[in-house]
Design a protein around this nucleic acid. Structure first.
Lengths: 102, 102
DNA sequence: ATTATTCATCGTATATTTACGATTAACAAT
DNA sequence: ATTGTTAATCGTAAATATACGATGAATAAT
C-alpha cells in the first residue's frame, strides 16, 4: 500500500469550521446571547461586557462577516440584530454534521 | 447612567466557545467525519488527509483534550473512536444555545 | 461652525494556532 | 539485541487572533 489520494478539505468542512470559529470566543457567544434577548447598539454591549469599545466592534465585525448579525444605521447609533435566517442555517449545518453520526 | 456592572464571561459561554474552537478547523471536522464512519488508527487518517503525521497527531490531541474522541492502545497502533456520549453532549450544548433564540 | 455622541478603523503588542521535520517512545517480531 | 511500525512529543517558523488606545468618520443638535 504505497501512498494515497491526498485531497484537500471539502467545502462543507471548511464552512462548518468557519462558523465554529466565529462561535469560538466567549465574547462572541456573550454578544449573541445579548442580541438574542433584544436588539442593541454597540454601546449597550460594551456596557455589559468587560471589553473596550474597539474590541467589541471587532467582534461585531466578525459576526457580521459571516452574516450572523446585521447592523441598521441610525446615526450616530447602529442597531445590531441577530440574522435569524443565518442563525437557523448555522443550526442546520451543525445538526447536519451531527446527523452523519448514527 | 454612569457606568455598569462589568462582569466576566459565564461558564456556559466559555464552555460553548471551547467546544466551538475544537470544531473550528477543517482538519478536525474532517477527522471527525472520518471517525464517524469508522474507528481508525492515526496512520489511516494521515493517509486520507494532506497533512503530516505530527500535525494529525496534534489535532487528535485537541479532540481528545475535550473528550470528543478516545484512543485505545494496541501497540504500536492506537485505535481512535468518537466518544458518542460527548458528541451527543456537544449537540445538546449548542442546541441549548440555539433554543434561547425563539 | 461647533460640539457631542457613537462606532469603525488603524497601529501595535502579545498570545495562540498551525504546520512541519526530527526525534523519541513503545512495543512486536525476529 | 536488532529491526520495523506506529504514534507522541519537541523545537521552531509563520500565520492568525485578540486586545487596547488613539484617531477618524458620520451625523444630530445647538
Amino acid at each position: 500500500m504505497a501512498t494515497s489520494k491526498k485531497h484537500i478539505f471539502l467545502d462543507e468542512e471548511i464552512k462548518i469550521a468557519e462558523i465554529a470559529k466565529v462561535l469560538s470566543h466567549p465574547a462572541r457567544i456573550a454578544i449573541i446571547r445579548i442580541l438574542l434577548k433584544k436588539d442593541c447598539i454597540c454601546k449597550e454591549i460594551v456596557e455589559e461586557l468587560p471589553l473596550a469599545q474597539s474590541t467589541v466592534s471587532q467582534h461585531l465585525k466578525e459576526l457580521k462577516k459571516v452574516d450572523l448579525i446585521s447592523g441598521e444605521i441610525e446615526y450616530p447609533k447602529i442597531c445590531y440584530r441577530i440574522n435569524r435566517t443565518m442563525w437557523q442555517k448555522v443550526q442546520n449545518d451543525l445538526i447536519k454534521l451531527f446527523k452523519s453520526c448514527c
